[in-house]
Design a protein around this nucleic acid. Structure first.
Lengths: 244, 244
DNA sequence: CGGCCCCTTGAGAAGCTTCAATCATCGTGG
DNA sequence: CCACGATGATTGAAGCTTCTCAAGGGGCCG
């Protein structure tokens, strides 16, 4: 008991266990999870967590830090498919494949929990509450991914992106209003499918209109209502002009 | 035995069982699946299979026909998140929710297999091969959804869309080269996030260049190589001019 | 057969990209 | 510790793509 409570890394004491696989599982199964998952793996900023086509042996749960998931198209462009934050589990889309389907690279220094896939599959077969939690996570991810990228204009895309990021980070730190925007504007551009210049112009406009604060990657939403309206303002008269 | 073999609707004899949940499950578990799933539900063209916010009691496997999945945004626009074809399972993203997360509407007259969610969850807990197949389906869907919509220009989006549809329909009917494009150009527009006019102009250009045939919803790819190149041609010199 | 969608095409306007130049920031090696 | 180089952020101007609005044509269903 003493040993456990002194350990920085247990699912019991993890600050993001209510977002992760540990949520809603029974006490005994939580112990199983804890014994299966190796805690404290460090990955330095800009390093890969895993690479595309490499053997998919592990899922990773994020304890600290953030990362981007991407693939490289025929022209050598990074196509970013997702960003992940503490409590998120990465690699799920590779769960039934021999090799990973994407690259995943750290946007800052990270600490990860390592989940061996064969053991995890076995645990799901024997633990209904872990299976149930896994299904919840996957169905949420599907819902999120399917909704993703349905906005049309650049203003709408950036507004929806910022609201999405802010809502996910607030979930993790309800008291904090200011966040680190760990990804570059180029990363955001590659994620949203628009150019870095356009991203920058929209962000500059949002700063000028005092809808957001953004300086040295420190990011804060000042006028959330206006930002939400911006996500819907397309095809209406009182559109906020990007170049104004 | 006689009774089973005479039944048009069994997972054993289903023409798309190798795409559906029935693939790779053991003989005994296939019988369980068969007894759980109610076959032969008909849904007429333009009718809903299920509606958003209604109680999510069933998953549906498509036996025949095709459908669109969508939600309605603040301006009343249909935001189409996916199209589905025989062998596909719909409703998975609502599996852990009390209510459905999307609308799903038939694009033509359909026949469906009805999977009661509580019974299906129970079956997964007790049948490792069904669980494994389910994980394969969800991870494939995630991979697909994440890659989705990462093309940038209208030419690229339409080209990638046509190639995707053709590849999925070929998988179901390897001998057929000509398909029914069951969704309207407006539906495609709402799915890709561009206007119907732009969709139409790209399709007209593809017809003019003899890359595809398209007449009265009958669709065929003539020059697959050129269509694939078109999906990649952006930011290169020999771009095919949309308005030429 | 009429009405209703949907498809088709054109022209002008708006939005986004491209190219280019400057500035800021960060990490590294001397 | 500072200088340097590399990468990312910022802004401007021009051109291309896409949207918007509009009008006509075609196929399908009652």
């Amino acid at each position: 008991m003493l040993k456990l409570s002194l350990n920085k890394y247990t699912c019991h004491t993890c600050p993001v266990n209510q977002l992760c696989i540990a949520k809603d599982v029974t006490e005994t199964e939580l112990h199983c999870l804890d014994s299966i998952i190796k805690k404290g793996k460090r990955v330095a900023k800009k390093k890969h967590i895993y690479q595309i086509d490499h053997p998919a042996n592990y899922l990773y749960a994020i304890y600290k830090g953030s990362c981007k998931e991407y693939w490289i198209d025929e022209n050598g462009n990074e196509c970013i498919t997702n960003f992940y934050f503490p409590g998120d589990i990465i690699g799920i889309e590779s769960l039934s494949k021999p090799n990973y389907m994407f690259y995943t690279a750290a946007l800052e220094n990270m600490e990860l929990c390592v989940i061996p896939i064969p053991t995890f599959l076995e645990l799901m077969e024997n633990s209904p509450s872990v299976l149930k939690r896994f299904i919840t996570i996957t169905s949420q991810k599907m819902q999120h991914d399917q909704n993703n990228g349905k906005s049309i204009t650049a203003n709408e895309k950036v507004a929806d992106f910022l609201l999405n990021i802010a809502s996910r980070l607030s979930e993790r730190n309800p008291e904090k209003k200011q966040f680190d925007l760990t990804m570059s504007q180029i990363d955001i551009a590659n994620f949203l499918g628009i150019t870095p210049e356009t991203i920058n112009r929209v962000l500059s406009m949002l700063k000028r209109k005092k809808i957001i604060k953004l300086k040295n990657k420190k990011f804060e939403i000042i006028n959330s209502l206006e930002l939400q309206k911006l996500g819907k303002l397309n095809y209406e008269q009182e559109k906020i002009d990007l170049y104004q």
